[in-house]
Amino acid sequence: MTDALIHIKGLTKSYSSKAVGKVLAVQNVDLELNKGDFIALKGPSGCGKTTLLLAAGALLSPDAGEVLIKGRNPYKLSQPERSAFRAENLGFVFQSFHLVPYLTVMENVMLCELAGSGKDIKTCVTELLEKFGLTKRLKHLPSELSVGEQQRVALARAICSGASIILADEPTGNLDTENGKRVLEYLADFAKNGGAVLMVTHDHNAGDYAFRHVDMVDGKIIQQ
C-alpha cells in the first residue's frame, strides 16, 4: 500500500480511430501525487496529458496498469459508486470552465450538492467566493462574467466539493496573464493547505507555480 493520494502504475491507454487506426495515447506511465503536491504536467499537444489526467480522475478506464486514489482502485467500483467516489475525492477544473450557462455563480458552485455528498457547503461556498473576489457576482450568470471570473467560479466549484485532489486541465489556457496568475496562486494555496493538484498545462509561466514538473512526449513521461 502507498500513502500517495493518487498512485498510477504502468498505465497504458490506447484509442482506435478509423482515420489513423490504433493510437497509443499513454504508455506504461507511473506517477504519484502526494498530499501537498502541485504537479504541472507538460508536453506538446497530443502527447497524452489529458488522457493521463482523465485516467487519474477515475473518468477513463486504462487498458493496462492501475490507478489507485487514496488506496482504492475506482475502476473496480460500480458506475454509481465511482460517481460518488469522484464526488467525494476529486475536483475538476477545465480550460473551457464548464459552467452551466443558466445557473448563477452561487448555483454553479453549489452544484456539487447534487452529487450527494450530504455536507452543508453553503458557508464554505460563501467564504470561498469572497476569497476569490466574487461576492458581488453571486447572482450573475456565467455569460455576465469575465473569463477570469468564470475560471475562478470553476475553481471554487472544484474546491467546495470537499475534494482533497484537484485535477486541472489547462486552467489558465483561456485567461490573460493577470487572471492566470491568480488562478495558479489559488491552486498553489490549495496544495499548501493539504490538498494535491495535478495540472495539465502548456503555459510556461504556470510551471513557475507548480512544485513539481512532469514532462510527457508520445505518451511517455520523460522527466519528473
Binding site: L59, A84, R86, F92, F94, V100, L114
Partner: peptide, 16 residues
Amino acid sequence: ISEVGLFLAIGIKSGA
C-alpha cells in the same frame, strides 16, 4: 452534452 459531461465528472449520478 458538455453540461452532462461536467455533471458526470463531478460525481452527479446517471439517475439524477
